[in-house]
Design a protein around this nucleic acid. Structure first.
Lengths: 229, 229
DNA sequence: GCGAATCCTCACCCCGTTCTCAGCAACCTC
DNA sequence: GAGGTTGCTGAGAACGGGGTGAGGATTCGC
């Protein structure tokens, strides 16, 4: 790919998790490398200077905070996103003091991670334009976390918001239910894909889309959001 | 073919299935190798570095997930498509999370598999252009899962869509009814080929092609789709 | 802590889809 | 043109995908 492709390093001692994240980020168009060990990660960061690092906090030998501190000590300003278990959330303040830029608690959804990464990269590049999604007369404001239909605000729950955002990001493209679950729900969600139907139903009601002309069902395939037609 | 011919490894302990898949993929122009054993597959992957791996999940000794994990552990980023039984569908997203890039539940249709493979290879090459098929005034948009005839949208059921896509992919080439059944229907379909006639009839009606000038019948041989000359 | 919002499962119902079959039309051969 | 073969299409039965309401569990906010 061209030189605008961001290079991301994912560091997590749970290799399965690192692989999952890497796979999703590659799908999103990034060039991804994984590491399962803090020391190796440090070496890679210094040698390859990635554009962003996703860093697990709890790792044996040398934890994420320590890795970050050492990066900063070397004067590297690469953006860092911490991954941490919910129980360790208290440590996060420590994390920020160590020079982290953002964090996510496990389990997270891949959409969430992608968003944080985008935001950090935008900031690093200095091209920090407002991320607004528009499809037809539906407007989704990322930063304000607000949704409007026909200039009237619609109140959505967190999950409803993530689902709508995902569909709008992929406007015009049919997304299958497993795909949706994999991206919108937390990665350890083990329920069936029926949950998607329920939330599409919620969204249609709140968005005044009872006939499904906005969020369209493609029977046997999935869902799309389309400008109108 | 030239050096752009992708090399694919198919791994499945049901050799009959592996052979069937291999045969279809060779017909589609790929260079295919098969393996029925996870360990042998690992060896092959490391030595020959295929462009893509089709990997059955349930295999004795070492299952597909484990193979994938080991591939990733060695730092290989070859795209992987998992094949899995419908009953194991819960494991599927797990599989995705093990670093697999896509998955299909058995039984699948060969067309479906071919499509996924194309999509993954496109992604790996970074040339991710919109896949659109055009024959005469019929347009089929893969991503949006939409079909237009003469700029008017036509609503097709899943099977109708797959059939039309297959014919359009093979435009100008007469496809026999058994060939069509083998590619468009799931591979364990055991009905007769009369089903093709029924669905061609559906398509002609929906595509406003009552006289069969678009989808042409070649008596005793099969069907072709041609730019209505 | 308490009430409210949210999340998720489940079950029921509707209807689109799939597939078979039978009758008929088109075509070919002799 | 007769008879056989092949293809077309309407009817209808069985199936299953999808919508939605109810309700229980959980989390959130104050």
């Amino acid at each position: 790919m061209d030189d605008t492709t961001a290079r991301i390093l994912v560091v997590d001692d749970e290799e399965a998790l690192a692989d999952m994240v890497a796979s999703a980020l590659r799908f999103a168009g990034y060039a991804v490398t994984t590491e399962s060990n803090g020391f190796d990660a440090l070496r890679i960061i210094k040698n390859r200077l990635p554009d962003l690092v996703v860093l697990d906090v709890s790792m044996p030998e040398i934890d994420g905070f320590e890795v970050c501190r050492r990066i900063r000590r070397d004067g590297l300003q690469v953006p860092v996103i911490f991954l941490t278990a919910r129980d360790d959330i208290d440590d996060l303040r420590t994390g920020f003091k160590q020079g982290g830029d953002d964090y996510l608690t496990k389990p997270f959804s891949l959409e969430e991670l992608g968003l944080r990464i985008e935001a950090l990269l935008r900031r690093a590049r200095g091209t920090d334009e407002t991320p607004r999604l528009v499809v037809g007369d539906v407007l989704l404001d990322e930063r304000a976390h607000q949704v409007f239909r026909d200039d009237k605000e619609v109140t959505l729950s967190p999950t409803e918001f993530r689902l709508l955002r995902f569909l709008m990001l992929n406007r015009g493209r049919v997304m299958s239910k497993p795909q949706i679950v994999d991206h919108v729900w937390e990665y350890d969600f083990d329920g069936n894909t029926g949950i998607v139907e329920t939330y599409v139903s919620y969204l249609r009601r709140k968005l005044d889309d009872a006939d499904g002309s906005l969020i369209q069902t493609v029977r046997g395939v999935g869902y799309v959001i389309r400008p109108s037609s």
